[in-house]
Amino acid sequence: MSYAIISLLLILAYVVFSYNHFIKKRNKLKEAYATMDVMLKKRYDLIPNLVKTVNQYMIHEKTLLEEITKLRQEAMVCSGKIREAKEDALSERLSTLIARFESYPELKASDNMLHLQRTLVKTEEYIGASRRNYNSTVRLYNTAIQVFPANMLASLFGFTKAGYFEALEEEKNNVELSFRKDE
């Protein structure tokens, strides 16, 4: 009888421990996503000012600037994998824009532009870091709910597998195509 009670208590302790463990992991996951979201929003806020500043100098990059503006608007209203694809494309376009600054000496001489460029580079790096952090948190969370026997409890309590923040190739291509159509 006493063995049965001890076993039952041990199982109960394991269930409580596992449940709390899943909750902690899930909260960390939400926190990581929120941090990444903050960084992405910071980038949305930077873009209008950036476009406004460079517009007068980079007349030959009109298409690129339009693409950046359009991608920003779309990324702000999208969600899930489509948003991830848009964010990816936005990062790519912004990197191209930063690389092209070199060809415009008058831009490099502007203090305002230098400040904007530094902020943008830093934000891009922070986005990359927060994305890596989110994906790492996802990996730890998924491992926690998929290993045996925790997976049985996880499914019982409704913990489901989380997705990584990475755009699928197909979605990335869709972003490219939509621009080609616009052009």
């Binding site: 990581a32 790096e125 922070y126 990359g128 870091a129 890596r132 952090n133 790492s136």
Partner: peptide
């Protein structure tokens, strides 16, 4: 701060 750590440790 895991994000800042990754910002530094690229």
């Amino acid at each position: 701060d895991p994000v800042e750590a990754r910002y530094i440790l690229t």
